[in-house]
Design a protein around this nucleic acid. Structure first.
Lengths: 346, 346
DNA sequence: GTAATTAATTGGAACGTTCCAAATATGTCA
DNA sequence: TGACATATTTGGAACGTTCCAATTAATTAC
């Protein structure tokens, strides 16, 4: 059935030219005569030829036009949107991407990286799994493949990175809550021993201290960075001897969970308790109450990461570049300051 | 800097054997002597050799071990989970996947398919964009590349498909609502002229009719299949002269939107109005109220689709196979029947 | 009419692997 | 020892492209 594939030589024979000419036509070279080009293209369509990029990549000068993307949790909207942003840029640049989910497993991540290397990726964007070490990315950098680490940093790795300004974002969010009259503000959700968590907690702490309030450790309640984690965290927070009246959450997923947990406890988020998230995923805007959150613009971040990688691939330069993306607080209703929200009791 | 890459010939030279022997070692052939194998492997590690799969794929017998996955909306949790399920299976099978988002654009989808073909995918799993025609998938099937269409069907395309039993799911959901005492049950959200929508509406209609109730068209309110779409749909539903007391929603995203919209209108989902979703995404379980929904198990569906594709690749058989995955109603709280929910007023 | 210039085309080696057929080494049996 | 079987190794052609250097054809200049 599936007859052996059509190659340039077949085209050449059918069009009565040499394979070199066909190759030139394929690359839209200006060297070839209009009439010849037309004829060759006609034959190409007629025989249903498909270009074999693998064969072309064999010549050492060529670029594979394949890049790798690895994210740590694709089921989290934040990362899905990040991936979509990258996809957009890569696709318009004529690249195709291997996209894999490490599910926070460094072992899986290692396998995927190895597999992608064997397939000759020209670059990699990675949101590293927890516990990723510089050594995991070393071989890539050593063989001249540009790597952009996004969202999370890998300490000691000589790769470019694009992370958001977690410290400033958290600080701004807490300052806003303070301006609304809160003083007992919790930090809810997220896994404790990660850099991102540490940076956000630091912002939370410094904002409270600068405002002249206490920042007791018991108000920092870690859990998973998910909706379920948010529910668990707010339950613990409400059972404290002196419960908080507001919370900055590790991310939007946790913040939604906190809202769910508040309702389960008979409290209305935005009215009885102020909730602020982090990320600004799409649903943040349409949720009820709309979520006040620190906007990281995941799609935009994905696009920037992709552009950064493309720049490195095209210029062939290897020096890593560290970019900290700015963030801004988007005030909606869940903090009690939005127009449509009811008045806060605190 | 980046010296030209290390090849089998370099390994051969360094280990004092022929390139053929190195090749045998790479394929873990039992033909080679233990001592030789050890030496070659040592050299491979020492020189930091990376296998060039592209070169190997050149021989026409070889399989590229690359498959393509295209989904229509990766920002929708349902599809993200679907992709994660596929990723799991593919990765353990030693495959790597191109994963792209068509964003419901048939043009983008076409480009992506073409690009993936040029890169020599051994198979494709696609959740087709709206408006995809059989012709779009024809060339793949013609060149013997197995294709599995998932979630949505492409009429007339001779490819395998794996869809869920939309009709039975919708019918069961409505029957459940009827058993709870509802008779004015709306169908909310989703884009009207799609097969999936039609099937679910038909299930809704038949269940109502069988129960002896009316199924007026005005109770079918389409919109986008998103959270925002759900909000819009319930707003319109509540403004009807005789508003419904319950709703089956096109999917979970829309159902969450309906819950949001209900609260915005001062009604509590699960108590004042029964809501049922479709899909059973992860958040359905942890949301408050937990969402009663028709479980499609997206990750499981992704895994099944991947297994189906692998089977087709391995057996080399081309005959398409149409599978309808069974679904089951998961009763939680948003319909008012769950244990923790308050009593329904209707 | 010949030389020089420009425009088009082309043969063939190279890219890094696999795999066949053939060669060599090792062992066994009479 | 020679004849055979078995275990291991190997040269070289192929896979489908690109690209250099060289060729041929067409045009222009003198």
């Amino acid at each position: 059935m599936s007859r052996s594939r059509v190659t340039v030589v077949d085209i050449a024979r059918a069009a009565g030219v040499s394979k070199s000419t066909v190759s030139l036509v394929l690359q839209a070279s200006p060297l070839v005569n209009e009439a010849t080009r037309a004829k060759v293209n006609a034959v190409i369509r007629e025989l249903g030829y498909v270009y074999n990029r693998g064969a072309a990549n064999l010549r050492q000068s060529a670029s594979s036009r394949i890049i790798g993307i690895i994210v740590n949790d694709l089921t989290n909207s934040f990362f899905a949107e990040l991936a979509v942003g990258m996809d957009m840029v890569m696709q318009s640049a004529g690249y195709v991407q291997f996209l894999s989910n490490s599910a926070e497993s460094v072992d899986r991540q290692r396998e995927v990286v190895a597999s992608m290397r064997e397939h000759g990726i020209s670059g990699l964007i990675i949101s590293p799994a927890r516990g990723t070490e510089a050594a995991d990315l070393k071989p890539l950098a050593a063989s001249g493949i540009p790597v952009v680490s996004v969202v999370r940093n890998v300490v000691g790795a000589k790769v470019s990175s694009l992370v958001s300004d977690n410290y400033a974002g958290a600080k701004a969010a807490v300052a806003h809550l303070v301006s609304l009259g809160h003083s007992r503000i919790a930090f809810l959700g997220g896994i404790a021993n990660t850099t991102v968590f540490a940076e956000r907690v630091q912002g939370w702490r410094d904002a409270l201290v600068e405002a002249g309030f206490e920042a007791p450790d018991m108000l920092v309640i870690g859990s998973t960075a998910s909706r379920a984690g948010g529910v668990a965290a707010i339950e613990r927070a409400l059972s404290l001897p002196a419960p908080p009246t507001a919370a900055l959450c590790f991310n939007d997923a946790a913040a939604f969970g906190v809202c769910d947990g508040l309702r389960a406890a008979g409290r209305e988020p935005g009215r009885d308790f102020a909730v602020v998230g982090f990320d600004d995923v799409i649903e943040a805007e349409t949720a009820v109450p709309a979520l006040t959150t620190v906007s990281v613009d995941p799609q935009g971040m994905g696009r920037r990461a992709a552009q950064l990688l493309l720049k490195q691939i095209n210029t062939g330069k290897v020096e890593p570049e560290a970019i900290v993306g700015s963030v801004r607080l988007v005030v909606r209703q869940s903090c009690g300051a939005g127009e449509k929200a009811g008045r806060m009791s605190a």
